[in-house]
Write a protein that binds this DNA or RNA. Structure first.
Lengths: 343, 343
DNA sequence: AAATTTTGCTAAATCGTTTTAGTTTTTCCT
DNA sequence: AGGAAAAACTAAAACGATTTAGCAAAATTT
């Protein structure tokens, strides 16, 4: 295997200084008046010896690593894995590598991971946060580490963010359910209480219901801890069922909740949408071939990734981001399938 | 924000050499006879100044980064995202960070990524490969980069590998379908032709069928390129349908194929399992609540990850791996649900 | 008391790159 | 010819850690 070729080897074998080689390799040769002849000689030698720069040495010197981090609560959640996949492709095509971290909705684990990634001198971070306030990110802004928040945001935050119009999504879902004649409706989200996406979806949902005079009783606004989803849902559904007080429809606020809800309704042999209708948030390909297929509010995953990566890249490259662009809100779509249509 | 504290700052503020500080920090102080008093002083100061070592500088010096790479064909495929998630947790608990790369079943992209990760001096790689021969990995063994192949392997490979007993999985599937009375059976896998998992599943499947005198006609062994799945399956199913020559059962060789197949059968309004039974490979939580729920051969995802990570860590730490442990084959389970049971 | 060993510590080299601050040589101008 | 300007290149420092080789003082042995 032999030893690795360094910039010094190139320089020595050509009888020039390593400064010169470095300049050529970094496209700064013209600026420094290195003659075209010499430049060619260097480039040829680089090819001949198959020189590969030591990424670590360069990162050390420059404090830059051409690596970005993506933090999400759980990479095995389909929504996040698709986001991660899109970002990975974009990053790759721009010469960046991606480190993915799952935070398990754990605020401390997230902070710890951010600290670690910062120590590694990552160039930037794309984060779907589990924090309970904007404060850590305002600090992050001050510290100068480029980053973009996706999915979840906070009021009064100074970090750039990309999210969807969750409020509008909630409204769309509500109007559709109302239109189908459902009035007794439950909502299932996740704790903790500060997750902006969940809250916006709920308030949007409630606002549209209220316009028709429909109010959701508090015990029908269910929130389950991440990791307890299945149990909580099973428990609640059983409770409703035994009490003979089933809602006519359920709005589940992310794709895992939708899946868990479907699964447990089936276990109880409750007919969908005959006995209970299901409206989900986040589309997943298989929702179209479950029986019944599932109506959802769909997020533009590719677009979220594109905008977020663009925003991050521009920060890394040092361009200012105007206030207007800083907080992007993308539209959502409603996809109506069988789970909300009374036959 | 201030400047970063370096080891030199600690040394100066204490009036000792940075050698000493470094030794203390790396737990080599006792070996070098540094007095307990001094050690304590150093550790206290480190806390006081909140010193964080520069990971890059250390990586540069040591040629080690405490980072491992995970290469899979597509991180948004549920099977791989769960594998990645498990590995991430294991790595994290051992002080390692994970870089995930999707190779798109592209042999060249994979090689390129391995090169890049190697340049970054990653400590090791866990790979579900898209290569068409063992040769690149035998080279990788020679080059001394620790790595473990998962999922897919080759005959006569010198790299450690963890896979499941795909042949047995194929047999299980076949015996179940035979037992249910199906004889005219199709198989859907992916190209290219050298993917060991696909081939083993098919040969296992065929071997068990053959014992009962059942032969699959060649045109019923379908292979689709990655990325063309949906189209290929749609086309083939339509063709069978219009020719009035539907198989009685279909064995789909990974979870995406199963999904795509379900989706297209629904579009054609073909009843499952009434007209066609479906047997999948790889379990995904929602296969239990589709209607019909889907019978599958399930792989032990956590176990694959654990064994692979253990094998990798031991290589990184320099211990030899015996020939016996080098090629681990884990058992699979059959989960029988509705999609293969005639009502 | 001199020689040896042990204890506790440090100076300096090293890793591979980038960059600052020049130097040397050639060309041009008057 | 003498001085200024331009062209082409380079020496050495810097980044922050680890490690090799070894020094000085104290303790122990002879």
């Amino acid at each position: 295997m032999g030893k690795k070729i360094s910039i010094d080897d190139i320089a020595k074998s050509l009888g020039v200084s390593k400064t010169l080689v470095s300049l050529v390799l970094n496209d700064k040769a013209d600026k420094h008046g290195i003659s075209p002849d010499t430049q060619k000689k260097v480039r040829d030698k680089v090819k001949e010896l198959n020189y590969q720069p030591n990424v670590l040495a360069r990162g050390f010197r420059l404090g830059k690593t051409n690596t970005i981090g993506v933090l999400v609560s759980d990479i095995s959640n389909r929504f996040y894995s698709r986001i991660a996949r899109s970002i990975e492709d974009l990053a790759w095509s721009h010469g960046y590598t991606v480190i993915i971290c799952s935070t398990d909705e754990d605020l401390n684990k997230e902070s710890e991971q951010i600290r670690l990634l910062r120590d590694r001198k990552l160039d930037g971070l794309i984060i779907s946060t589990s924090q309970d306030s904007a404060e850590p990110f305002n600090k992050l802004v001050d510290s100068g580490l480029p980053h973009v928040l996706i999915d979840r945001t906070f009021e009064g935050m100074r970090s750039p963010s990309v999210s969807v119009d969750n409020f509008a999504g909630g409204r769309l879902a509500a109007r559709h359910l109302l239109h189908q004649g459902y009035r007794k409706i439950a909502v299932i989200g996740i704790t903790p209480d500060h997750i902006s996406t969940i809250n916006d979806r709920i308030t949007g949902f409630q606002s549209a219901l209220a316009e028709e005079g429909v109010i959701i009783p508090p015990q029908w606004i269910i929130k389950t801890p991440f990791g307890e989803m299945d149990n909580t849902i099973k428990g609640k559904l059983q409770q409703f069922y035994q009490a003979g007080a089933m809602p006519e429809a359920i709005f589940t606020l992310n794709n895992n909740l939708t899946s868990a809800c479907m699964l447990n309704l089936r276990k109880l042999s409750i007919d969908i949408p005959g006995q209970v209708a299901i409206m989900g948030f986040d589309d997943v390909s298989f929702f179209s071939f479950t029986r019944p297929s599932i109506s959802v509010i769909a997020q533009p995953i590719e677009r979220i990734s594109e905008v977020a990566f663009d925003l991050l890249l521009r920060q890394i490259e040092g361009s200012k981001i105007s206030e207007k662009e800083k907080s992007v809100k993308l539209p959502v779509d409603i996809i109506i399938r069988e789970s909300t249509i009374k036959s």
